[in-house]
């Protein structure tokens, strides 16, 4: 059987989920956002929740998430996605509600909303994409930028003495009693994508069981902001981001 003969509907193994629209993603080539969007939608589809889900889009590169995710979405002001999600979830407790936020949105301007929503134990899922930079506005230093890491506003590298320390907000959130599940994953290799998908699945399952806030961080690349090719940026991420932001489950519910 030749290659072309295998291409038949009955042999189909994998295709992009219909819960992603056919719009061209506005992300740079190789950006982890696209993969993170897709696996989130795949999980909702597999759990049969997609038709009954409201997503909250952030401000940042993923501000247009509502154009790409083929589900009900609401756009929040910068950093306020957890607050909007709180309102939505309290009005419709039976809907699955999640926010999708970057590090500039969640860990900078939205720190208060994030911490208080998590501390209240709002029954929502937060998906946090951490690329250590403000990608959309031109690669400025973010709270999550690594020590010594170059950005357009720290051209000689982040100097901890004058610019402060990077914020591990995921570890911070994990200490709060309202949070039931915290995990940090990546989406740059097939293995990591599968693990990230599993973590997102657990997060949504716990939300349906009303276990409180669930939080999944995805460490991602920003090849444009880091001034690298996509493949180089994934390598740089493994060598530099992962030692500071180690992958794995940080908090799991007691059985």
């Amino acid at each position: 059987m030749v290659f072309e003969d295998i291409i038949k509907t009955e042999n189909l193994v994998y295709k992009k989920t219909s819960f992603m629209t056919d719009n061209t993603l506005s992300y740079c080539p190789g950006c982890g956002h696209g993969t993170a969007h897709r696996i989130t939608m795949e999980v909702l589809e597999e759990l049969g929740l997609a038709e009954n889900t409201i997503g909250i889009a952030p401000v940042g590169c993923s501000v247009l998430a509502y154009d790409f995710m083929n589900i009900d979405m609401q756009q929040a002001a910068h950093g306020r996605a957890p607050a909007v999600a709180t309102g939505v979830k309290r009005c419709w407790p039976d809907k699955t509600v999640f926010t999708y936020q970057g590090d500039g949105d969640l860990a900078a301007i939205g720190t208060a909303e994030t911490i208080h929503a998590c501390n209240r134990g709002e029954n929502i899922t937060i998906i946090f994409i951490n690329n250590g930079i403000y990608g959309m506005t031109g690669g400025q230093m973010a709270p999550t930028t690594l020590p010594g890491m170059r950005s357009s506003t720290s051209p000689y590298g982040r100097d901890v003495e004058t610019m402060g320390n990077p914020l591990r907000i995921t570890e911070l959130v994990a200490q709060l009693p309202g949070v039931s599940f915290v995990s940090r994953q990546a989406v740059h290799t097939p293995r990591n994508v599968r693990k990230a998908k599993k973590a997102i699945k657990t997060a949504f399952e716990l939300q349906t069981q009303k276990k409180g806030t669930t939080f999944v961080e995805i460490v991602s690349n920003c090849n444009s902001g880091w001034k690298m090719t996509p493949v180089q940026s994934n390598q740089w991420m493994e060598e530099n981001m992962f030692p500071f932001y180690p992958l794995g489950d940080i908090k799991v519910p007691e059985k």
Binding site: M1, V2, F3, D5, I6, I7, K8, N11, L12, V13, Y14, K15, K16, M20, T24, L25, Y27, P29, G30, C31, G32, H33, G34, T35, R38, V187, H188, T189, P190, V193, R194
Partner: peptide, 25 residues
């Protein structure tokens, strides 16, 4: 190298833009 493809779907899973469709027989 079309002959080498095993249909493992690894490429489709990591494609940020979801442009790859995979078949296996």
């Amino acid at each position: 190298l079309k002959e080498e493809c095993t249909g493992c779907a690894n490429c489709a899973i990591v494609c940020p833009d979801g442009v790859i469709t995979v078949y296996r027989a």
